[in-house]
């Protein structure tokens, strides 16, 4: 499998991803130790000394295959999986939250054609 498995619980597909995929049905409160080195590569602080790691705690139960925010994501920010943009946040998403249609929307194939204005969807996310 490509990517890095976090503690047998979740899969990080690429270094700069802001979400991981649950590899099991995870309960609220589950802790995921996340290595933050990858995201601080361009940090000017020049800190050395290996893995600075932090723990992401699941805010809610997240089902197998569903996504977990690994960092706080602000509304309007792009969300990354596979090292690529999979959509934008339609609400503020705290680290440890479930990321799905209620808080993440596509920027493509839209009747409104306003790729950058994902909030046009409203907080509901899924237009059905």
């Amino acid at each position: 499998m490509k990517g890095v498995v976090i503690d047998d619980k979740a899969l990080l597909m690429a270094e700069n991803d802001t979400v991981a995929t649950a590899l099991d049905d995870l309960e609220a409160g589950t802790e995921l130790p996340v290595d933050t080195d990858a995201r601080s590569d361009d940090s000017a602080t020049g800190e050395t000394g290996g893995a600075s790691s932090r723990v992401v705690v699941l805010e809610e139960a997240i089902e197998f295959g569903h996504k977990i925010a690994l960092a706080d994501i602000e509304a309007g920010e792009k969300i990354y999986k596979y090292g690529e943009v999979i959509g934008v946040a339609t609400a503020d998403v705290p680290a440890g939250a479930w990321v799905h249609t209620h808080n993440c929307a596509s920027t493509r194939g839209r009747v409104d054609r306003e790729a950058d204005d994902a909030t046009a969807l409203g907080a509901g996310g899924d237009p059905r």
Partner: peptide, 21 residues
């Protein structure tokens, strides 16, 4: 709107959020 059909409801149940994903 492409988002109505893609991903399908089944895809979404399976964890896929957007067509890009």
């Amino acid at each position: 709107d492409l988002r109505l059909a893609q991903p399908s409801p089944g895809n979404k149940d399976g964890g896929l959020t957007t067509i890009e994903e």
